[in-house]
């Protein structure tokens, strides 16, 4: 049995940290959305009509 010690108090972010996290979250949402569009477009461009032509 090992014994670790830690505080049970939840990590509370101050106002500046919360504001910065909102800013990062928005930026991440935009980046993830753009990546979805990017990978979709690359797939279409690289495979073209052949995207439907695959063995099932």
């Amino acid at each position: 049995m090992s014994t670790n010690t830690t505080s049970d108090a939840p990590l509370s972010l101050d106002a500046e940290q919360q504001k910065a996290r909102r800013s990062r979250s928005k930026a991440l949402a935009v980046v993830l959305g753009l990546m979805v569009v990017m990978f979709y477009a690359v797939t279409i461009i690289k495979l073209g009509p052949g995207i439907m032509d695959r063995p099932l």
Binding site: T5, S12, D14, Q17
Partner: peptide
């Protein structure tokens, strides 16, 4: 594993300080 609360550990506020997270 047993987690114990002790009064010698950093407070939540102090942990938030070292946590960073201030970058926009």
């Amino acid at each position: 594993t047993v987690y114990e609360q002790t009064d010698t550990l950093p407070s939540a506020g102090a942990r938030a300080q070292s946590f960073g997270g201030r970058g926009t």
